[in-house]
Structures are given as structure tokens and as C-alpha cells.
Design a protein around this nucleic acid. Structure first.
Lengths: 326, 326
DNA sequence: GCTTGCTCTGGTATCCATTTCATATTTTAC
DNA sequence: GTAAAATATGAAATGGATACCAGAGCAAGC
């Protein structure tokens, strides 16, 4: 396999000149440029990018940490990231961690080993202090509100969005509201829990502990959720569900059971998933695609900010989409 | 930043010995090994992986070509790939091409540039001959039946699976069958079209051209599909739909319109998506997760097969899951 | 006593491009 | 006409690891 030295020898120029041609530098005469291009063509030569990575200290690639790619929430963020990465001609290394912290650490080590130029952490179970240690090796952006951390973040105000949903239900006259979420101790679900409790304390509406239901991750859990609600002696008039796919499953199951929505049970979801639109599910759109895109833009700016750039914290807007489930 | 030379100098050994320690080679005495490990610890040293990639000619990473990651079909394959990549300690570079052939070519060029060790092509619009040219630079695996190509493949028998579904409908007594698919000229939808026509020719059942409907990619198209069927003078008794999410949307819309399933319209879907299970949709499970996993295993074997290995073509099983929509 | 094989170590070549510095020539500016 | 700036070129240093080869020391086998 040919290398730059051979191209230089055959073209009758120095390797420097070949390098200049490869990188479109000015100050190369037309005849030498053509000689080099001809040789490249003839030998079917391509640069060995690993050598470029070594000498430049850059790889034009960014790692993305997320637990499971098949989950709509994550796949749509990934799509936003991928769109921007394509524009910027960057590669995305998908690191699916299955919620295992040791795998997350391995990715951060990649940053240290110079395999990648930056890391986008979509969801993490690592402590902020641990992540902060790695900011010395390159830019890091999380998709969670990280407060005043030394790494950047691009985030939705889960607290405000959730309270907005609750207030919307209250304004519509619902006096008893249930809440359903995924993993109980996830970082954004903790925020939603606080929002739920704060809202009830401040509004004076009754809060039943049994109306807070966790571990609703998929469609089957959504269906089970409806049965659980049906079996309650006192059932809430409305429910706010983190994840449209779970809310949709609940609505479909409600249809089977003859429970009318919103008359018997009002439902509000999150993420504005396609299935929710079809079912007329009122939802809070977290603009996940935009979040992915913004996360990439941020990491891209930081990579080109020559290291001295300060962390940025970008808050993104959400939007309540009114349909017919409330 | 420290390098191997400095570690060697401070530890009082040669760079070779340091390298051996880093790579867990035998034939290093305990005291030298400890001296090296101590220095590494003290200087907080990490290998520069780009140097390793350059000298070894390997990067332990594989690129994945797919059009859109948010589509369930693709995200579940990606999850299968990611699971196996995690086990093998390989990185996955996600290349979302938005169906643009020039982006696919860029990824194949990466193989030539030695940025990656192999390519998994989940869906492509490139001609097999074009892909074959790149087999000289490293292993390539597609997730489409590529016949006797010089690159490997891991595939579902779309033809057989589709005919199985059609035969199942015929066996249940349906005499008029419609068909709905995504992009008309996609490689797997072409196969399904042939299967549809062949089945009708051989079974003698009537085939109406207006019962073959294309460009049904998402939930909205699924809902529109139902309206299109409703508006037909002569409507098929059953429909086979490529993609459970489209079939599910059709079912939900049918529910709204008072069209009973399967009495007024039988439906059979593909991919065994969660929403279909909830709706009682009979479907053909293409085992997409397993396909992703198998694709990674195949590329992994080829990478470690020292280049001389022949292409393999692995056929995967599908499974008809009977529920209540037929 | 001699050969063989295993353990341990290091020097040097190698992977392949970019970057800096030095130098030569040509053009522009006043 | 001369100084300054722009253009054009190449030699050598650089990034940081691994691979190959050579050689020393030591034990076992005959």
C-alpha cells in the first residue's frame, strides 16, 4: 500500500508538497500539483487517517453515551446528533451502556486516550464529580441539567415542563391527579417527583402515595398501569405519564375496557411520539430531536474553542401540545 | 503529556519493556513490571490509542450504515449490533445516511482510509458491484440477501416470510388481499412485491393493482391508508402491511371508524413491535435484534479471519406470531 | 561438555502523515 | 532601485506506540 513518501518520490517532489496538495494548501505550483494528483490517481492512494489522527491529535469523532438505543426517547436524540454530525463531517461512536457505569467510564477513558475529541452523555448514572475529572481531557456535554458543573449541558427544564402539565390539568378542573414514570431513581424522574410533590403542596390538591407509580418503561407496563388504576378503590381523574408510548398503551387498554378518555380518565404524556398523535394524546413535546442537534452543536463549538472555552449551559424550550385526551 | 519513552526513562527500562507491560506480555520480571506500573500511576499515563491504531493497522471499530436511526426497524438492529460490540470491546460508528448514496460511499472510503476495521451495511441504495470494490480494504457485511456477492450477508428470507404471511391469510379463507409497503424501490420491498405477484399468480386469487399501496412509512401514512381502503369501491378482505407501526396505526384508525378487525378487515404486520402486541396484531417477527447481533458476530469473525476468509451468507429464521387481527 | 529451549531485556526500524524552519524566487510598493 | 511581501519548495523534526531481531542468562537433557 502506497504512502505519502512514495507519492512524493514518483511525483518528483517532497513529501511536504504532497501533504500540501492533500490538504489544499496554497503555494503549490500547478504543474507540481497536477503531477501529485496524477500519481495519487495512478497508485489509487488514500491517506492513512490513523497517521493524521496521531499527528494532529484530533479524530473528528465524538462518543455518545446512552443506555439503550431502541428507546424512542434516545433514538430521536441520536437522530438529532447524527444530523448535525453529518453536516460537520464528524463521526459518532455509539456507546450503548445498558445503564452500566463501568461502561460509561470506559468511554470517558477513550477521551483520555485521544480516541475521540469529545463526549455527549445523553443519560448517565455517574456522579457529576466523576465526570468533571475528565473535562481535563476534552469537552463533555450532558443532556441533563448539571447545574454549575465544569462540563457543558443542554437540557429541558423537566421541573417546569412537568409542573406546566400538572397546572394544565388543574386548570381543566381535575382535582385528583396520578403520576407514572420510568425508573424511580433516574435523574430526570427524581426532578419530576419533586415537581409532583411541590405542585400538590402548593395547590392543596390531595396527593395519594399510591397514585405515584414507577417502573413503567414499556407498552406492557402501560397496559398493566390501566389495570392497576382500575383496581383502585379511589382512582385519580387524570394521570400524567412520562413517555407517550406508555400513555398510548394505557389509552389503548382503556379503550378495550370501556374506560372513556378523557371523561373517565384524562391522560397527558411526554415526548410527542407519533403513536400519541394518532390517539389524540395531549402531550408535552420535549423537542428531543432539537436537543440532540443542540448537543452536537455545543460539543462541536467546544472542540473548536481551543480548549480554553468555558462550559455552557443551554436551556431548551418545551411545548404543550393540546389534543383530546384531557 | 507523558509518553512511553518517558515512562521507560523514569522506570529505568526500555520502551519495549514498557510496551510489554502495557500489553500484558509475559517475560517481564516482577520488579521491572512493578517499576513501570508505579511510574504509569504516578504520571497518570495513558496510551495514545491513535499511535496504536497506526502501528497495528487496526482500530477495533466498525461502521454501521443505516438511513435513519429513529425507525424501529433500524434501532432494534442497532441494539443487537451494540450488544455484541460491547461484548467484543469494539466501537460502533453510527453513520446515518438519510438514504444518500454519497454518504454511504464516504463510509466505505473510511474503510479504505483504515479508520475502521469493517462495515455493516444495514440498508443501502448502492449497487452490489460498487460495494464489492471495497472488499479489498476490509470485511463488509450487509443485512440484505446479496446472493453470491464477494461480501458477507446476514439476512431474512423476505420472500419466504412474505409468502408465508399471504398463505396464512389464504388458509384462513381470505380471498382478496391488499399489500402495503414503504419505499417502492427499496431492495427488500422489491422482493416483497415479487412475492405478492408470484403468490397471486400461483394461487389464482384476484390481484388488483390498486390494492398495492406504497410509501407507507409512518403512523400517519397508516391512518391515511385506512381511509384510502374505505374509499375503495371494492375493498380487500385482508391486508398485509410491512411494518407493525403502520399496521397499528391502521388498526387504531379502523377502531375510530367502526371498522372491525378482523371481521371487516384482517391485518397482518411485520417486525413484532411492542405496539402491535398490545393491539393483538398478528405479525411476522423478523428477529431484528438477532439479526443485528449476528451481523456483528459475522463482521467480527471476518476481521479476525486474517483477511483470507471467504464471504459467508447467513440466513436467519422468521416466525409468524398469531394474535387476533386475522 | 554441549546442545536446546525458555525467560528476560533492549536497540532500532516502522507505521504515515503534518508542521516548523530555512531558503529561493518572484511580485508588489513606494 | 530597493525593501517588503507573497509565492514556492524541501529537509528534518514530530506525534507515540509496536514489531522484529539480537543477545544474555540459566536450566534441562543426553
Amino acid at each position: 500500500m502506497a504512502n505519502i513518501k512514495e507519492i512524493a518520490r514518483i511525483s518528483g517532489v517532497s513529501v511536504t508538497t504532497v501533504s500540501r496538495v492533500l490538504n489544499n494548501h496554497p503555494y503549490v505550483s500547478d504543474d507540481k500539483r497536477n503531477a501529485v494528483l496524477n500519481t495519487i490517481e495512478q497508485l489509487n492512494y488514500r491517506r492513512n487517517m490513523n497517521a493524521v489522527h496521531l499527528i494532529t491529535g484530533r479524530t473528528k469523532s465524538v462518543a455518545v453515551i446512552m443506555p439503550l438505543i431502541r428507546i424512542y426517547y434516545f433514538s430521536i436524540i441520536m437522530e438529532g446528533l447524527a444530523q448535525e454530525a453529518l453536516l460537520a463531517q464528524y463521526r459518532l461512536v455509539l456507546c450503548q451502556t445498558n445503564y452500566r457505569p463501568e461502561e460509561e467510564l470506559k468511554v470517558l477513558e477513550m477521551l483520555r486516550n485521544k480516541e475521540i475529541d469529545g463526549v455527549v452523555i445523553v443519560s448517565t448514572s455517574l456522579k457529576p464529580e466523576v465526570i468533571e475529572e475528565y473535562t481535563a481531557y476534552g469537552p463533555i456535554v450532558t443532556c441533563q441539567n448539571s447545574g454549575e458543573s465544569r462540563f457543558s449541558s443542554v437540557y429541558i427544564e423537566h421541573y417546569a415542563a412537568f409542573r406546566h402539565g400538572l397546572q394544565y390539568l388543574a386548570d381543566k378542573g381535575y382535582r385528583s391527579i396520578g403520576y407514572c414514570d420510568g425508573r424511580k431513581h433516574g435523574s430526570s424522574s427524581s426532578i419530576r417527583q419533586s415537581a409532583f410533590r411541590d405542585f400538590h403542596r402548593e395547590s392543596g390538591l390531595p396527593l395519594h402515595e399510591e397514585w405515584m407509580i414507577f417502573d413503567c418503561l414499556n407498552e406492557e407496563h402501560g397496559a398493566a398501569l390501566l389495570h392497576r388504576l382500575s383496581a383502585m378503590e379511589e382512582r385519580p381523574e387524570a394521570i400524567i405519564v412520562a413517555g407517550d408510548h406508555v400513555a398510548a398503551a394505557l389509552m389503548i387498554e382503556a379503550g378495550k375496557q370501556g374506560i372513556r378518555i378523557p371523561e373517565d380518565l384524562a391522560v397527558i404524556g411526554f415526548d410527542n411520539q407519533p403513536i400519541g398523535k394518532l390517539l389524540g394524546l395531549t402531550t408535552i413535546d420535549n423537542k428531543l430531536f432539537e436537543m440532540g442537534a443542540a448537543a452536537f452543536q455545543t460539543i462541536h463549538e467546544q472542540i473548536h474553542g481551543d480548549g480554553g472555552s468555558q462550559p455552557v449551559h443551554r436551556k431548551l424550550d418545551y411545548e404543550l401540545i393540546e389534543r383530546s385526551s384531557v
